[in-house]
C-alpha cells in the first residue's frame, strides 16, 4: 500500500511534527487521553475474546464477527465526537457499541440472546441499537448502513443542527452500488457524513486486490469530489487526528468526507472462518509490530504515565467488567415467549 499523506481535506494546512507510520498526521495525546484510549481499546479486546470463548461454548449462536485488531479505529473516531453525533455500522459492531458507551452487559446478553440484551434478545450480534447513545445499528446487509448513515446526515441537515453522522463500512462493502448512490447524494446535498472505510484487507476471504480495481479507498469519492484521507488505523492518535479534521470539515457545512482506515483483523471473518487465505506470518507480524493497544501501552510506560502495576489494575478492571457481562449474559433468562409478537408494529 502506498499511503498518501493527509492532504488537508477542508483546505486547512495540517502542520504536525509527529507522523503516523504511513506518514499521516497524528495528534499528541496527553496522559488522560492515552489512558482513556488504552482502557477503551482493551475493553473491546477483552470483550471480544470473551465473546469468542462464549461462542466456542455454545452460548452465542449464529454469526459472530469479532473486532480484534481494529480497536483503534472506533476508539479514535469516538474521541472526536460530541453529544448528538450519530454512529452506524455493519455487522462487525461489538466494538462500536462499547465505544459508544453501550453497556457490556447489554451487548453480551444480546449475543447470548437473553432478555437483558440491548434488543431484548431479538437482534443478536449483528443487530443492536441504542437511541440513547445515538447508535443506529448493527446492520447485517453489507453496504445498507451506508445509505442509512447518509439518511442520518440528511436528518441533521434538515434539522439545521451541527451534528455529524459516522457511517462505518469495510473494504468489502465499499464495492456495493448503493455506497456510490449515497456518495452522490451526500455531496450533492452537502450532508454532514463521515464515511469511515475500515480496510482490514479482506472482505471475508477475499483480499482487497482480488476484489477491488481501485484499492486506495480514500479515493473512492473522487468522482463526486468528496475528499478522502488514508489513515493509519492501527495508531489511535492518527485516527483521532483524521477524525478531528473530518468532523471540522462536516460541521463547517462542507459536506461528506471519506476516511480510509488501514487496519487489520486478527481473527477470521466470523467464528467459523479458518482464515486459510492469509499466512500466519502476516497475522503475527501485524500483532507484534502494529498492535493498536500495545502501541499505547509502550508509550504510557515510556513516558512514565503508567507503571506496569497501574496497567495491571486497568487490565483487572476491564477483565472484571467483561467477566461481569459474561456472567450476566449466561444467567439472564431467555426472552419471555410473549416477546415473539412484540415490536413488529407500533
Amino acid at each position: 500500500m502506498a499511503p498518501k499523506t493527509a492532504a488537508s481535506a477542508s483546505g486547512r494546512k495540517t502542520a504536525k511534527p509527529a507522523k503516523a507510520s504511513n506518514g499521516g498526521p497524528i495528534v499528541d495525546f496527553n496522559k488522560d487521553e492515552e489512558l482513556k484510549a488504552y482502557r477503551e481499546m482493551l475493553l473491546i479486546r477483552r470483550f471480544e475474546e470473551k465473546a469468542g470463548q462464549l461462542y466456542g461454548m455454545g452460548f452465542i449462536g449464529g454469526f459472530c464477527h469479532l473486532y480484534i485488531g481494529q480497536e483503534a479505529v472506533v476508539v479514535g473516531m469516538q474521541m472526536a465526537l460530541k453529544e448528538g453525533d450519530q454512529v452506524i455500522t455493519g455487522y462487525r459492531d461489538h466494538g462500536h457499541m462499547l465505544a459508544c458507551g453501550m453497556s457490556a452487559r447489554g451487548v453480551m446478553a444480546e449475543l447470548t440472546g437473553r432478555r437483558g440484551g440491548l434488543s431484548k434478545g431479538k437482534g443478536g450480534s449483528m443487530h443492536m441499537f441504542s437511541k440513547e447513545k445515538n447508535f443506529y445499528g448493527g446492520h447485517g446487509i453489507v453496504g445498507a448502513q451506508v445509505s442509512l448513515g447518509t439518511g442520518l446526515g440528511f436528518a441533521n441537515k434538515y434539522r439545521g443542527n451541527d451534528n455529524v453522522s459516522l457511517a462505518y463500512f469495510g473494504d468489502g462493502a465499499a464495492n456495493q452500488g448503493q455506497v456510490y448512490e449515497s456518495f452522490n447524494m451526500a455531496q450533492l446535498w452537502k450532508l454532514p457524513v463521515i464515511y469511515v472505510i475500515e480496510n482490514n484487507r479482506y472482505a471475508m476471504g477475499t483480499a482487497v486486490s482480488r476484489a477491488s480495481a481501485q484499492t486506495d479507498f480514500s479515493q473512492r469519492g473522487a468522482s463526486f469530489g468528496i475528499p478522502g484521507l488514508q489513515v493509519d488505523g492501527m495508531d489511535v492518535r492518527a485516527v483521532k487526528a483524521a477524525a478531528d479534521e473530518a468532523t471540522a470539515h462536516c460541521r463547517a457545512g462542507n459536506g461528506p468526507i471519506i476516511l480510509e482506515m488501514l487496519t487489520y483483523r486478527y481473527r477470521g471473518h466470523s467464528m467459523s472462518d479458518p482464515a486459510k487465505y492469509r499466512s500466519k506470518d502476516e497475522v503475527q507480524k501485524m500483532r507484534s509490530e502494529h498492535d493498536p493497544i500495545e502501541q499505547v501501552r509502550l508509550r504510557l510506560v515510556e513516558k512514565g504515565w503508567a507503571s506496569e502495576e497501574d496497567l495491571k489494575l486497568i487490565d483487572k478492571d476491564v477483565r472484571d467488567i467483561v467477566a461481569d457481562s459474561a456472567d450476566f449474559a449466561q444467567a439472564d433468562p431467555e426472552p419471555d415467549v410473549s416477546e415473539l409478537y412484540t415490536d413488529i408494529l407500533l
Binding site: 445509505s147 442509512l148 439518511g151 442520518l152 440528511f154 434538515y158 452500488g177 448512490e181 449515497s182 447524494m185
Partner: peptide, 14 residues
C-alpha cells in the same frame, strides 16, 4: 436503492 436508504435513515433519526 440509495434514496430509499437515505429515507429510511432519516426516518430512523425521527
Amino acid at each position: 436503492h440509495g434514496f430509499a436508504g437515505v429515507g429510511v435513515g432519516a426516518a430512523m433519526a425521527g
